[in-house]
Design a protein around this nucleic acid. Structure first.
Lengths: 229, 229
DNA sequence: GCAACGTTTCGATCACGATCGAAATGTTCA
DNA sequence: TGAACATTTCGATCGTGATCGAAACGTTGC
């Protein structure tokens, strides 16, 4: 009798600690961080952070990699990021009463990475713009790049033709917890984010997963993609 | 500063209690249950269950409906079920070491409902069989019914043509936590499950969300769908 | 209105896990 | 080899939340 529900509870307990949630949230951009850095993020001493990190690794939410005297922690799999993102969506869809009008970090809400693609106002606006030009079909649960869309993104040097070489799905929606609407994920979403970083349209902020839109970026998103932000 | 990570932690804390996890798990078939019944499921006294149920409703994971002197609880939205299912997948994908060879309820593993569609060996086998006949394309993240598939399911009286009338997506994969492979969800999955109930191929077990495959059902799944179970 | 029943509220107890100081471990570099 | 640094282990403390008994509440049916 004690079975899947128990596993569910154990997993949830792992995420339920505020410090660990901060750590997981911090790692959701897919990059690795040192134990010390994560202690700062969680707002606890290194000993305590170590205890938390140990539990997260033990339960396979994180994986660790030794780099010299320091240890780098990152999410174990993309699936973990995906589930956490989903949980955030549910969390934000909570009780309208007890929720003071969404006092969520303005920077995060504006633009952030969601594992390897773009989210927030920018992410959703990009998806909207692509949809408006019939480059993309995207609803809450499925997504598809049109031929014109593949060609359009191809003009930026992105090869997004369907291919058996790639295990990853080309195009899928990812429900944005701050905008409550889907943005673009999958190989296409990741490629688009990478392009934006390479062309310096966006820059990672030193900490957190929010990103800064450069002036050139704002211009590019508007003129090249027709984004309204 | 108190933000999305905090919301995530709060949501997780809600699921982290073994009793509440049992309650949520029990409600994942989408049906409603009385407070008393759920107290039995959780293995706690009615007072304690009431306290748990109150928290779950307050945080909008459950909704409650008064039916005479008793109160019926059910999941607030399909999204909640979807996220819980996702969490179960991550939970089961945990540490191979500490995990005694998946001692999960045999009945659940065999066949169960996943909110409104079929999961477990039966669910995955059905998806496999449909795929084998080129009725269905389904990977971990996207799914599509072929024309032949639409026609095939149409021969059972299921109208699964794409339609703007329906808000729900026709066909999507749902990662099966016991089989670790996708089964069929969305409108098509729900319709198929409903068909199976109507024709008495499967029956709900009095408690829990596992279902019993009738002799006629086993025969039908094999001969009509080419399912190998 | 009263009795029966399901459910919730209140109050007190108890256990588990988060926390940090102190100290040990392990790695790099000189 | 030894010093410097990041990280982990150990041990003790402390706070929060789950629990249940007792009692109140609210609905139904007579």
């Amino acid at each position: 009798m004690p079975t899947i529900a128990r596993e569910l509870a154990d997993l949830a307990a792992l995420i339920a600690d505020p410090g660990r949630a901060l750590i997981l949230s911090r790692l959701m951009d897919g990059r690795a961080q040192t134990a010390g850095e994560l202690a700062l993020v969680a707002g606890v001493t290194p000993q305590t952070a170590s205890w938390h990190l140990g539990r997260l690794v033990q339960h396979a939410l994180l994986k660790v990699e030794r780099r010299g005297p320091r240890r780098l922690y990152r999410l174990a799999t993309p699936l973990v990021a995906q589930i956490l993102e989903g949980m955030m969506t549910v969390a934000v869809t909570g009780p309208p009463s007890s929720r003071p009008p969404a006092r969520i970090d303005a920077a995060m809400r504006r633009a952030r990475t969601c594992y390897d693609h773009l989210a927030g106002e920018l992410g959703v606006a990009l998806a909207d713009a692509l949809r408006e030009r019939d480059y993309l079909v995207l609803d809450q649960e499925v997504g598809e790049l049109t031929e014109a869309g593949t060609a359009f993104l191809g003009s930026f040097g992105l090869d997004l033709h369907p291919s058996a070489r790639h295990r990853r799905v080309l195009c899928r929606p990812c429900l944005d917890w701050s905008e409550r609407r889907p943005h673009l994920a999958g190989r296409a979403g990741a490629a688009l984010a990478e392009l934006a970083f390479q062309r310096d349209w966006i820059r990672r902020r030193p900490q957190g997963r929010s990103v800064e839109i450069t002036d050139a970026g704002l211009d590019a998103f508007r003129s090249l993609f027709g984004v309204r932000i």
